[in-house]
Simulated scan of single mutants.
Amino acid sequence: MTTETDATAAASGAKATERFHANKKFAGDTSQERVNRLASRLVKAINDTVLEEKVTYDEYNAFKAWLIKVGEDGEWPLFLDVWVEHSVEEVANENREGSKGTIEGPYYVPDAPKLESPATLPMRDDEPGTPLLWEGRITNVAGEPLPGGIVEIWHADDRGFYSQYAPGLPEWNLRGTVVADADGYFQINTMQPAPYQIPTDGACGQLIAAAGWHAWRPAHIHVKVHAAGHQEITAQLYFVGDEHLSDDIASAVKPELVLDPKDKADGTGREVIYNFVLDPVK
């Protein structure tokens, strides 16, 4: 019987690639001039690096072999989401007045079970970790509540694994689509996740080892928050005191997204309040 600890980079990468093709839409009408500008700058940056750093044929061939392995392992979603997406997100959300966003990452799955607030995420009877109650409110930039706002939430378990990306986990473990009440309030009961390393047994792990980097991400909760007539925001919520807040391998931490949970008075876990402010659709 396979369990979550039997997860491999190749299997996770293949699932992430499959999800990308199924769920993501991308513009097919980008002008030739724009493609020329972006592609030319990218190619120039690579060639400038080769010339400035005096790259050898051995290094070039190692790089080529590594690129091929990234594709064979299906790790392009992981590579791009870890090392590039944070810059794309910064551009996409630079003019927002409301809540800060950050990267989505490769492990989002749409259509998680719909749950009315107060909600408890699907989890195993013996789900490891510390219970966490998250309460919040969804408003517009004027501070007015957004009735029926939606919080899509997903996160790794206490061992750093995501349902549908590691074997042995229930399909919707720690995933849900929570509907706020008429005043925009919501309550979500879950388990506080732990820090984890991104997969290191594939091409991305080879790069990390060769460069002497670490593979750690701070503990985080993923969300997509949206309401009718307002811009969706994608974010990750982190935790005060996590040792990797300052050196997240994905460069995705923002101080506005760091939670500071407190112990509940009855000793049954931790609780925190965090609200979201949504910008209007332009």
Rank of each mutant, 00 (worst) to 15 (best):
Y108M: 08
K24W: 11
H86Y: 15
S99L: 04
T139K: 01
E59W: 10
K44C: 02
D125E: 13
V43K: 08
S117P: 07
I103M: 07
E75Q: 10
H21R: 08
G136Q: 02
W134P: 00
N93D: 12
I103H: 00
V35L: 10
F26Y: 13
V141E: 05
N93H: 09
P131G: 01
A22H: 05
Y108N: 09
I138L: 14
T102R: 01
E90A: 15
A92E: 13
W154Y: 09
E53G: 02
P118L: 07
Q32E: 15
G129M: 00
V109G: 03
F79Y: 15
S40T: 15
N140P: 00
N47C: 06
R96F: 06
K100S: 15
V50H: 03
G143D: 03
A39M: 12
P128Q: 05
M123I: 03
V82Y: 00
G105Q: 04
V43G: 02
V141N: 05
R124F: 12
G98C: 01
D125A: 11
F79K: 01
K69D: 11
T120W: 01
V91T: 12
V151M: 13
R124L: 12
R37L: 14
D58A: 15
K64A: 14
V70M: 11
V141W: 00
E135Q: 13
G28D: 07
A112G: 14
E53S: 13
E97L: 11
P113I: 07
K114N: 10
V91D: 08
P128I: 08
R96K: 13
T130S: 00
T56L: 04
F26R: 06
A92D: 11
R37V: 12
V43Q: 11
L133C: 06
V84R: 05
F79D: 00
A119F: 05
D125N: 13
S40I: 03
